[in-house]
């Protein structure tokens, strides 16, 4: 019951947060520039074009009115049209969401699958060669620019060794969309050829995105483990002769993972943010390439909508992380 109350309380906080986010984006797009219509029209637009845009987007109205209109539009799922393609931005973003989510989820799963055991083992064998190696990898992983790592991996594995595709998400069109996740759709359709291809395309982007996530997860898992290892309950179970493996992988790990879990929301945010640059390198047709293309075309509205859209995803992720955390830690209930 208390879990439900917590979820309800968090959900109640979402509208004000979203409202605040819209206010920031609106300020950035409508208040900071002295003439937003000129920015939207682009550098080479004529005065009449600028005037047309000003009128078309209601930029001649008072700012509070503009803001309320903006909030109303976004609330009804209308994010306006792209200034470049003239297509509704919300549709484009939704169409590209599965590609980015598939990539982010693969990277997240990989990062957890590698990071958690590595963190546990590093904590159990403190100051061993493995622990030192893990530390070096962690420090490097957090210091590497994602786009650079992407280029490096592409150079090495795709261009020089020819092991993986250089770019894209699939050759050709991809499976008929059911979920929009190519791997999942291929499995659902029983199309193993497509599945293999989709996976091959996923390897490098996933690796790139996963590395900093692995670094964060290892760090927090290791720190969490070391923190709980000296707890009285660990001593009690040891003194009562419960097998070490059992203590470590059942009782210690759960306690250690709570600290790691607080980071999962942040890590997911980083994955989405990292996707912006990594997708560009691999021509991955997701939200990131959409954002970058919009930047290149000075497609102002698209960039702002992308910001709001990412914010929504991020807020939802954090909500889910909070719920998971409450379920794992009975003290917070």
């Amino acid at each position: 019951m208390r879990l439900l109350a917590m979820v309800a309380r968090r959900c109640l906080w979402m509208p004000p947060t979203l409202f605040g986010l819209l206010l920031i984006v609106f300020t950035v797009s409508h208040v900071i520039p002295s003439d937003p219509a000129r920015v939207m029209a682009g550098e080479n637009a004529s005065a009449s074009q600028v005037a047309a845009i000003r009128h078309q987007y209601g930029l001649d109205l008072p700012l509070p009115v503009q803001f309320l209109r903006y909030v109303k539009d976004v609330a009804t799922g209308d994010m306006g049209k792209s200034l470049f393609t003239q297509r509704p931005v919300a549709e484009d973003l939704l169409a590209r969401l599965p590609a980015t989510m598939e990539l982010a989820l693969f990277a997240m799963s990989l990062a957890i699958a590698i990071g958690v055991p590595l963190g546990v083992v590093a904590a159990l064998r403190r100051n061993s060669w493995l622990d030192h190696l893990v530390r070096v990898v962690t420090v490097a992983g957090l210091a590497m620019a994602a786009f650079w790592l992407a280029i490096l991996l592409q150079l090495l594995f795709s261009m020089w060794m020819g092991l993986t595709p250089v770019r894209g998400r699939i050759n050709g069109w991809g499976p008929d969309p059911i979920t929009g996740f190519f791997t999942l759709d291929a499995v659902l359709l029983g199309d193993w050829e497509t599945l293999g291809q989709a996976l091959r395309h996923l390897i490098l982007p996933t690796l790139t995105l996963a590395l900093p996530a692995v670094a964060t997860i290892v760090r927090f898992t290791r720190a969490g483990m070391i923190n709980v290892m000296s707890s009285n309950f660990v001593f009690y179970q040891t003194a009562m002769g419960i097998p070490r493996r059992r203590i470590v992988w059942k009782y210690l790990l759960r306690a250690a993972l709570i600290g790691t879990l607080t980071q999962i929301g942040l890590i997911f945010g980083n994955l989405i943010a990292g996707a912006v640059v990594v997708e560009t390198v691999f021509d991955w047709p997701g939200l990131g390439t959409f954002a970058v293309n919009s930047i290149l075309h000075s497609d102002y509205n698209a960039v702002m909508s992308f910001t709001v859209f990412t914010g929504v995803i991020f807020i939802l992720t954090n909500l889910m992380v909070d719920i998971a955390q409450t379920m794992l830690d009975p003290r917070g209930r």
């Binding site: 986010l21 950035v28 797009s29 943010a273 930047i295 910001t307 807020i315």
Partner: peptide, 23 residues
């Protein structure tokens, strides 16, 4: 704190992109 939470509700680089794009 709510205001800073709102800023933290978007990955930093995404918001930075939006602002840098405007400016």
């Amino acid at each position: 704190m709510r205001v800073s939470d709102v800023f933290l509700a978007v990955p930093q680089i995404v918001l930075a992109i939006a602002i840098a794009q405007t400016l």
